[in-house]
Design a protein around this nucleic acid. Structure first.
Lengths: 254, 254
DNA sequence: CCACCGAGTTCCGCTGACCGGAACTCTGCG
DNA sequence: CGCAGAGTTCCGGTCAGCGGAACTCGGTGG
């Protein structure tokens, strides 16, 4: 865990971060366990957070509140990314009719920030707001390959968690793949995050080459050939990148 | 403004709420003006907020932080709504090729929570996370018509802000429209939020008739006939409602 | 060159908001 | 009935947070 200063804000963040991507509602006791706060403190804090709607009271506990959603959707950098990307993701979906993702890098994980997949989408291990280790998915590898060296060595020197038997779990193998990805701008994944699932991904690069996000298309191993869609994914990622840069230069001009 | 208790959390919310949907970055002084906090307090608070990434430091000030985005995307109720709705919105977009919106009711405003519109989308006055008075748009009227009587009377008795010359600004007229909408389940708008723009909207109702959200399709007055798409919009809204209810009964079963 | 202004930062002593241990209520369960 | 786990309330001590004031810094104009 990260070092949490003993301040109100620190406690607030501890509570909010106690909610994982898959948690719907958490009860008082569960939150107590996860945060390590004393009952009295936690009780008061939860009450206060609910009052400002950073948390909502549910039937069986608390959940992240509507106000949080409202604020989050306004976070300008990410919103801009989502707004700009959406049309390209739609295109990509219309072309492939497979599940399309947009993810950003957050710590040693991918954070999924957008997803388009139609009604009969192939089950992916991703949820909006969900996470996946960087090394265990196409989108993650695309991000990682173009990340600063510091992050890459950090990930490579930490143990590589296996999500499936096919997850790349040896640093050497991963390092070689990343080199290839950095050259080609395309990352593949064959059942590395979930059995039965294949992906292609491509990075969205900013105006001085730093990686901003990555786009991927995922489909079932049986009928989906990632290579067939590499060009489309790459084109979408490039399109997003160009639009972002154009927008940025417009606003900073004034 | 709402009464803000003199507590840290209260100040935090004051600061975060100082950011409007259109604000990108706000400077120290501007935040001081909007929040009314003393310089010393504000300075410390901003530093702390930046440290936990509820705010990010930009080149010319502060903006809502990445952590906020991450938490917001996890707020379960809204995330579920977005996840369930997306496929239906995609359908609607593929069918109409016009800008599609999803909005929820928040105070006396619509809050736009999703938007699909392709590259050449017609300019709408909405942004993701943006707001619009309930009475001044199709999506707002759809929400309002199915809202609890208390909200309706509150909106009807407050002055109805004009966004264009065609905005419905007389309570009588609005009340009559709302009655019709409640019967038909379809709301129209003709240049009431923005000149040149027409909309159709339909409410997404929960399992005991309460309104959860609303869907709309918007297009330019010149080539867009809202009536032509009423059925599609209504179908999408109903589809979302059914899926939401099905999901809810599944989780509450266990 | 200085005087002025607005933006942002630092200092410091006072104080009440926040802390957490402990005692309490309220369930459901065997 | 007694116990265990969830959640709530009480209360005195203390330190995090408060804000006035004095400061730096960069720009502007007289």
């Amino acid at each position: 865990m990260t070092e949490v200063p003993n301040t109100l804000l620190g406690k607030v963040m501890t509570v909010l971060n106690a909610f994982g991507a898959d948690d719907d509602e958490l009860g008082f006791a569960e939150l107590g366990r996860r945060t390590g706060l004393s009952k009295a403190t936690l009780h008061r804090l939860l009450g206060d957070l609910a009052e400002v709607r950073l948390l909502d009271r549910g039937t069986r506990g608390y959940r992240l509140g509507g106000h949080l959603f409202q604020l989050g959707i306004r976070a300008s950098v990410e919103r801009r990314l989502v707004e700009v990307s959406t049309p390209y993701l739609e295109d990509l979906y219309e072309r492939t009719h497979e599940t399309v993702h947009l993810g950003i890098s957050e710590g040693h994980d991918v954070l999924y920030v957008a997803k388009i997949g139609g009604h009969r989408q192939t089950p992916t291990p991703s949820r909006l707001g969900g996470r996946m280790p960087l090394h265990a998915s196409a989108i993650g590898k695309a991000l990682l390959a173009h990340s600063p060296a510091a992050l890459r060595t950090a990930v490579l020197s930490a143990p590589l968690e296996r999500r499936t038997p096919r997850t790349i779990a040896t640093p050497g193998m991963l390092r070689r793949q990343l080199a290839t990805i950095r050259e080609t701008g395309v990352a593949y994944e064959f059942e590395e995050s979930r059995i039965g699932l294949c992906c292609v991904a491509s990075p969205v690069l900013g105006h001085d080459g730093e990686v901003v996000a990555a786009v991927s298309v995922a489909g079932p191993t049986t009928r989906f050939d990632p290579r067939a869609h590499a060009a489309s994914v790459h084109a979408a990622a490039t399109g997003i990148a160009l639009t972002l840069i154009r927008r940025a230069s417009l606003t900073s001009a004034h």
